[in-house]
Structure formats: C-alpha cells, structure tokens
C-alpha cells in the first residue's frame, strides 16, 4: 500500500511531531515516514501547518513535542548533522541578490565544506545542465523569478544532500517554467536525493510518488496519488484535496 519505495531505507521518520504557539496548535501529532529517493508531496490549505512542519524537519524550528529523524539524525539533538545532510528552498526567495550566480554557488558550496576546485567544477556542470552558463556572471537580483527559483533549487542540491525540502517552489511562475522545474526535481530524485515538496498545484501533486494532505495541523490522508483517487472515488487530486479540505475548521492565517 505504501508504494514502490516501502522496502527502501527510511530517510525521514516522524513520530507524534507537535508544534504549539501559545494556545494554537499549528502541527498536531503528525507521524509519517519518507523513503530514500522518493518524491514526497506535502499538501494542505494555507495555514494547515505545512511550513511549520517543514521547518521542524529542517531543524529551524523546535518542536513542542514528538521527534523527527532526518537522514538518521535527531532534529533536536543533532541539528547540525541534520543540516549537513539536507538542502532547503524557502517559500520566499532567499539567495543573496547582490551576489552573482556563480558567487551564490561558491558561498553555499563553501559553507557545506566543499573546496574551491570542487565548487568550480560542480557549478560549471550545473550551469551547463541548466543552460544557464551565459548568466554565470549576472547579479541574482537581475534574474527573472522563474530563473531565480531554478537557481535556488540548484543551490539547495549543490552539496548533494540526502533530502531536499522545497517549500512551494513553483509559486508564481508560468506553466512551462513549472514543467522545467519538475524535470529538475525528477533528475534530482533519480540521482538518489529524496525530495520533500509542498505545493498548491494539484497537477504537481500527481507527479509525486506519495502525497500527504494536511488539514488543521493533522495528516488526514497519505498514499500514492492513484490510491488516494481510488479511495475518495474522484477523477483527480483536486477532488481528493477538496473533499479533505471541506472538513477543515481553521481559517486562513
């Protein structure tokens, strides 16, 4: 039932993970596993708690209770080890705008402990694959949004992390760029990087190996898109999402 990856190594193990802000429970005892090489879709309405949950997995946010193991390390006790093994692309573009394209690669490569030669080789290779060589010396702030997001993804997987977390990576870009972006995601997954992605686009949900749907801080459904559609007796993922979201009590924050 858990799909073609279930016999593989578990890269993310979450149990009873909870985050409260005062009286408000943003994430309510969620438990799930993500397998190596999987593209794991993390769906939910605005304010359902996706970003909060993701930030806890990235050791950016301290859980109120529960545990999460990412790449075999506890996000609480071994946060630096977790951080060495993950890549992260936040919802808001957060590369250095006043650095050039290659300089962003160099900075983050350097932070993750790569040396000058490795950085040069890897960034040339990546820029080449992206067809982005001509923009190597462009300041990042001068790039269009679609390119910025591809660049942010490339920087996030530059140090070959075990897992990459993508928080609404295709927000606000055109369909063709989204498509190209998903080709990059597939390529990364093919190279063995586990992809953990949140999205609002239901067509993108169909591209995932498995999808979870968060409602009011809980995970109400988790399966392959095929199984979910069958279970909820609908045509597309949109139907699944609407059926689940209808049960939500929480207003948008």
């Amino acid at each position: 039932m858990t799909g073609k990856f279930s016999d593989r190594e578990r890269v993310i193990v979450v149990s009873e993970l909870t985050k409260k802000f005062g009286n408000f429970t943003a994430v309510d005892k969620i438990s799930f596993d993500v397998y190596k090489g999987e593209i794991f879709g993390f769906l939910g309405a605005n304010g359902a708690g996706k970003t909060t949950a993701m930030r806890m997995l990235c050791a950016l946010s301290i859980p109120t209770s529960g545990t999460a193991l990412v790449a075999n390390h506890d996000t609480m006790r071994e946060s630096d080890k977790v951080k060495s093994n993950i890549g992260y692309m936040s919802q808001k573009f957060s590369l250095y705008e006043d650095l050039k394209v290659w300089e962003n690669f160099r900075l983050f490569g350097g932070i993750y402990g790569m040396n000058d030669r490795e950085i040069t080789e890897k960034s040339n290779l990546m820029l080449d694959e992206l067809g982005f060589m001509s923009e190597k010396n462009t300041l990042v702030k001068a790039l269009p949004l679609g390119w910025k997001q591809k660049l942010a993804f490339s920087v996030a997987i530059f140090h070959k992390p075990k897992v990459v977390f993508l928080d609404e990576p295709t927000g606000g870009v055109d369909p063709s760029t989204r498509r190209q972006f998903w080709e990059l995601i597939y390529k990364a997954a093919h190279e063995g990087i586990t992809v953990f992605v949140t999205t609002h686009y239901m067509d993108e949900a169909e591209y995932c190996d498995r999808v979870s749907v968060m409602v009011d801080g809980r995970i109400d459904a988790l399966d392959t898109p095929y199984n979910l559609k069958k279970e909820f007796k609908v045509e597309g993922m949109e139907g699944v999402f609407l059926k689940l979201a209808r049960g939500a009590n929480r207003k948008e924050i």
Binding site: C58, A59, L60, D80, K81, K83, S84, I86, Y88, S90, K92, F93, S94, L95, Y96, E97, F108, I111, Y112, V155
Partner: peptide, 14 residues
C-alpha cells in the same frame, strides 16, 4: 528582512 538568514540558518554553519 531579506530572508537570506533563513538559507544560512538551514546550513550546519557554527
């Protein structure tokens, strides 16, 4: 304010 700190915080930088 620029949000770049987030990208730094997610790295293992001491």
């Amino acid at each position: 304010e620029a949000g770049t700190i987030e990208q730094i915080n997610v790295t293992p930088i001491p």
